[in-house]
Computed example of a mutant assay.
Amino acid sequence: MDLRIFTEPQQGASYDTLLTVAKAAEDLGFNAFYRSDHYLHMGAGNGLPGPTDAWITLAGLARETKRIRLGTLMTAGTFRLPGVLAIQVAQVDQMSGGRVELGLGAGWFEEEHKAYGIPFPKEKFGRLEEQLAIVTGLWATGVGEKFNYDGTYYQLTDSPALPKPAQAKVPILIGGHGATRTPRLAALYADEFNIPFASLEDSEKQFERVKEAATAAGRGADDLVYSNALVVCVGKDDAEVARRASVIGREVEELKANGLAGSPAEVVDKIGRYGEIGSSRIYLQVLDLDDLEHLELISAQVQPQLN
């Protein structure tokens, strides 16, 4: 089981805080550092010191880390034109020496679009499909060749399709709970399918839908990596679990029901159950970015039992 660290910087985190967490994750043996792509905090609090841009953050981390993979759950398609996004991701991949992964979603949080003057189109899913076709098409175009695309929402004419990523194939992540269109898109474009904050039962159903869509598209069902994103709250004892839950404004029993919470043994057991339904990668949503001892505990007492 591949454990990865997943952060939500819009809730309140500076670049320096993210750098500290990313370096700690790397030193502690986690395989990847991911972040969300939002410009407005959600729920309680004020989100100070304010948002950080996902790809500017990852560009900085690309130069200040050495091993850990870097990516987004999920880059919002509404924030960036697909041609520009292809350039950004390819450049950050070069800056990292080939450690970038692109999670791409349609975008959903209308309030942040209003807050920062970002258009929020009615038809987002059709745009996402064209964005995936363009980004992957630009990267796949040979050097010296031209890329053209004539879609409903985007048109590209005689693009040189440069620059190229350092990796021959940047992994593409697609995720969500949609029963029909999401599995179809994953089957067409994804290297990994991720379902966020879902129960074992719902995860298994969605994984099966994606596998069926992959088979229908002429791919092997096991060609994709299947993963979950779940909030994490681990403690050496009940008091430490309760303290960590309180800091992030959650109840222990709710976290145990909907995420990964409790003692290391409890969390290992629940991760194992996700593994049994086909998940091979867990994105641990870490909500208190100042608590590096939390990461140390997971590294020391959870991760070794899963390897």
Rank of each mutant, 00 (worst) to 15 (best):
G47C: 02
S199C: 04
T20G: 10
A216C: 07
G77C: 13
E101L: 12
Y283M: 14
G278E: 04
T152V: 14
A44K: 14
Q88W: 10
A245E: 05
A54D: 02
C233G: 01
A217V: 07
R273T: 08
E145F: 09
F30K: 04
H113W: 13
H38S: 01
A213H: 13
F125H: 10
I68F: 04
G98M: 02
D291V: 12
D158P: 12
D269V: 00
A62T: 08
L70N: 03
L128Q: 05
Q305C: 02
K270W: 00
G262A: 02
K122E: 14
A115P: 10
I248H: 06
G45H: 06
Y15S: 03
G262I: 01
T215A: 15
S246Q: 15
D53Y: 12
L19V: 00
H177V: 12
A25C: 02
A140Q: 15
A22K: 02
V241H: 01
T136G: 09
L73V: 15
Q167L: 08
I271D: 00
R63C: 11
Y15F: 15
L295F: 07
T152C: 09
F197R: 11
D237Y: 07
V268F: 00
A166Q: 13
V84T: 14
V252Q: 07
D288T: 06
Q305I: 00
R127L: 07
L297G: 00
F193C: 09
V21Y: 00
K205E: 14
Q285D: 11
T182W: 03
Q131G: 04
